[in-house]
């Protein structure tokens, strides 16, 4: 149960965190710790130093800025789940977060930690893609914004570079959009075997899946099939067929490739039905 030894540094600001990262090149950032610490306890990771950014005030909280919401990277799941701003303007986030882990995980885990970690079975990446979120990162060379579509690049890998910190998530506010997340949880770990997020805005649908492949991805076939169509039960059912070919999907004790592919169809249908209020 003991991790290897490491040096502990607490950052008080983003700039301090960036300079600490420069001083300790092999260090890991510590956010909620709910992905990092379990792997360290099993000694699957043994970073020589941890830089705790969880208490950096400028990284916390949800606010409305013009036509988008800004979510600080260190905002916890619990804060997301209970945020009135999100419930009002972006209900898919509280809804998806409510299905993550358990209340204790939600008390500590953060949106920034989850996106930076890019676990293929994590829940939030699907909603980020469906929402067309922008992810802001900051490093020694300054800040940049990465579209969620370009952020997840592989299993546990993202478009962030060494020394960069994920600071904010920007979510466009879409009045009148209908959105929902449907999840088939792993029976033991409760991570997503398959989770599908859908955002329907006017005649267009953005949909994304997590758990199915190496990283969360858009369901373009579904989006095209529903483009310009009303969200009726018939249209939804017809569209949610064979959304992903099984060949490149994940497989494990709980779900083979074929079964996962099937679950993508079922979860997509359920998310759409819920979004459509059917």
């Amino acid at each position: 149960m003991y991790t290897a030894e490491f040096t502990y540094k607490k950052a008080g600001s983003i700039s301090e965190a960036i300079s600490l990262l420069q001083q300790h090149p092999d260090a890991k950032l510590l956010a909620g710790g709910h992905s990092l610490i379990p792997t360290m306890k099993l000694r699957l990771a043994s970073p020589p130093a941890l830089i705790d950014i969880s208490k950096v005030a400028e990284l916390r909280g949800v606010r409305l800025e013009g036509d988008h919401l800004v979510i600080g990277a260190m905002t916890t799941y619990h804060e997301l789940e209970t945020s009135d701003l999100l419930k009002q303007h972006c209900p898919i986030i509280p809804q998806a977060v409510h299905l993550i882990g358990d209340p204790m995980v939600r008390a500590k885990g953060t949106i920034g930690g989850s996106l930076a970690h890019a676990d293929p079975a994590a829940d939030l990446p699907a909603s980020m893609l469906a929402l067309d979120a922008k992810i802001k990162v900051q490093g020694p060379g300054g800040a940049r914004v990465i579209a969620a579509d370009n952020f997840f690049t592989g299993m546990f890998s993202t478009a962030m570079q060494e020394g960069e910190i994920l600071t904010e998530v920007h979510v466009p506010v879409r009045a009148g959009a209908r959105m929902a997340y449907a999840k088939f949880p792993h029976p033991a770990s409760r991570y997503a075997v398959v989770g599908v997020a859908v955002v329907a805005d006017g005649g267009s649908v953005r949909a994304a899946v997590t758990g199915a492949g190496e990283h969360a991805m858009r369901l373009s076939k579904l989006e095209q099939a529903l483009a310009g169509k009303p969200l009726t039960a018939e249209n939804i059912t017809a569209a949610c067929q064979g959304l992903l070919p099984p060949d490149h999907l994940n497989h494990d004790l709980v779900a083979s490739k074929e079964y996962r592919a099937h679950l993508v169809d079922v979860m997509a249908r359920r998310a759409l039905m819920q979004a459509a209020g059917l």
Partner: peptide, 19 residues
């Protein structure tokens, strides 16, 4: 291992004391 940290339930096995 659940305890309350500043009023909220957390898993004390998934936190370092320094946190």
């Amino acid at each position: 291992c659940t305890v309350h940290l500043d009023g909220q339930a957390v898993k004390s096995c998934t936190m370092f004391a320094v946190q």
